[in-house]
Design a protein around this nucleic acid. Structure first.
Lengths: 340, 340
DNA sequence: GTATGATGTGTGAGCGATCACACAAAGCTC
DNA sequence: GAGCTTTGTGTGATCGCTCACACATCATAC
């Protein structure tokens, strides 16, 4: 009733001529409220512009209807994409999201970020940390029994997570190139501590070995177009013999295309290039990039769905949800040239 | 003291042999605590793994040390970039961030997003909504006296905001092209309801008029490379006469480059192209893109600094902080060809 | 030696909600 | 119509903290 203050449960109760508990029942959509009482309360809420105080709710209710999210690298296409869809899914389920972005995935900054979130009595935690280093067990230790879902963890790990089947994606790309007759490959990997990058590299090596193809060169980039450019220059300069170049993401492939162009190497006539991710711009590269599409939106949704399920059904089994990537063939790959 | 439960202020107090109030003083870094008492409390906190409950803090303290952020289009380079720096700056100032992303900027979804945030007793609101429609007054109405800062609002508006001087950026680009001898221009604008897009368009029109140059064609894109591609095709097909193409962002410029390439038009020999934003990939376009660099990191920091200042000093004057963009000249622009 | 201020520390109330009850009134059954 | 369940409503305690005090203690001042 105070003049400037935000109205409380009691103000609403007084106005509607009921007890505060009844108002609480209405806003929590519980049973056992007579229809006309409910209507009266609802009217009072609207008239007063009442908004339940989340802080008070989570203090008293011992449950905050809030999810924590740790992110890494949201300036990248994938993570940003996931973030949007996670937020959307959370809000649809009436959960709020509070997030902390880490700039490196050291245990130290991860711990700091998680601490931040744990101050709020979050109901669950979503970890979008595609880098090895902090394991599920580490998280478990910090968070007690709270539900945690990792997005993009070690494939096959016995921990609650949602992942994209990177090995499958790489195999699609490799098969595509092998079918086109390529036998001499070069690779621009992602950073070694990124789980996906590691898996893709290992899978490529294995797939090529199985097909009797050679990996003439393999360098580690940092996901930027810049690194793709420099490493490709380097490989060309060193005279590496390859007809197919596999880049671990589209940006690095973009850099590679530039290096090849500058060197007068025809793509795909002399060298085929494939990327990974299928960022929206990939269609407009010169030439349009053959790449592996990852459904980040689906990945994000998988993760949060799992988390919510776990929160509502505490005995939800620990599992890994897997999404399949798809190959998108465009102009940067072609039949291997007769000789080289 | 309960076994499984998280420790509270009282548990810490008991262990340290002081009153709960003293513990509160320690965690809030207030004066008037003896050094050895403080040390004893700190030890107890560490031993118990005590973490103050933010919900209780904001309930009792009437102030949440939490900022709300409304975002739009965080899958785009600029907004994502800002988000990272905003989060970082907030955390550095010991504020938590809770955010809501809107997928359209109708009053309806904006209101819903803000409502979500207001449930938390946020201390301030940051609106990264680069689209016209929701004005500062609308926000004011929803939020009462709470500090609000808009990022990317109408330039010159009498509202608390941080912006990049789009007009300046466009003038830099226009002057650059005019100096190179260009007199016949084409434009691919951004969506009309985006404030920046509107300003850039108006400024370009004015700048060209002042220089006696013509705008042969101007079409509205949707920021995607795809739209840039299609609209350029369209202009070429229609036989528009221009030697310089100004795109409202780098992605649309990328699409334009593709359309020109397909048509066999040399860039920059026959047509010069400039973009806007300077995304990291722009260097590796074919040819490398001349563009206007926006310092999104700075913009984000400006916004949050302003907001924090306002929170701490309520009589902070209403103003608009402006950051200047810079022209980055690369290979996509050149001297106008002799004739055309 | 009493007044005055700075420095420490403890007590009670209350933030705005939820939970666990208690209890009244109605609708069944037999 | 006694006894039960279902439905609807209200009361007290409590969540974990901060606020506004009250109250010591010690130094310095006059």
């Amino acid at each position: 009733m105070s003049p400037r203050q935000r109205p409380t449960l009691h103000d609403v109760a007084e106005r509607a001529g009921v007890s505060y508990q009844t108002v609480s029942r209405v806003i929590n959509q519980q049973r056992y409220v007579a229809d006309d009482t409910r209507a009266r309360v609802l009217t009072a809420i609207a008239e007063l512009g009442f908004r339940p105080n989340r802080a008070a709710q989570s203090l008293a209710g011992n449950r905050s209807r809030t999810l924590g999210m740790i992110t890494f690298g949201i300036n990248q296409y994938g993570p940003a994409q996931m973030m949007i869809h996670i937020e959307q899914a959370a809000r649809a389920a009436k959960y709020d999201l509070i997030f902390a972005n880490v700039n490196d995935t050291s245990m130290l900054s991860m711990r700091a970020a998680i601490e931040t979130l744990l101050h709020w009595q979050i109901d669950g935690l979503l970890c979008v940390t595609p880098v090895a280093g902090v394991t599920y067990d580490d998280l478990r230790l910090l968070c007690g029994a709270m539900p945690i879902v990792q997005i993009g963890s070690q494939p096959g790990a016995e921990s609650p997570s949602a992942v994209i089947d990177q090995a499958h994606g790489v195999r699609l790309a490799a098969e595509h190139l092998l079918t086109l007759g390529h036998r001499q490959f070069a690779e621009i990997r992602g950073p070694a501590d990124w789980i996906d990058a590691h898996v893709r590299h290992e899978t490529l090596v294995a797939a090529l070995a199985a097909a009797g193809a050679t990996l003439a060169a393999s360098h580690e980039g940092d996901w930027t177009a810049d690194s793709g450019y420099r490493l490709t220059q380097q490989m060309l300069h060193a005279g590496a013999a390859f007809t197919a170049l596999v880049a671990a993401n589209d940006q690095m492939a973009l850099g590679a295309l530039m290096a090849l162009r500058e060197r007068g190497v025809g793509v795909p006539e002399q060298i085929s290039v494939v990327g990974y991710d299928d960022i929206p711009e990939a269609v407009y590269f010169a030439p349009p990039l053959t790449t592996v599409r990852q459904n980040f939106a689906q990945l994000g949704r998988d993760g949060i769905e799992y988390l919510l399920e776990w929160i509502h059904t505490p005995d939800t089994p620990i599992m890994q949800r897997t999404t399949q990537p798809a190959l998108v063939v465009r102009g940067s790959t072609g039949v291997v040239s007769a000789e080289r």
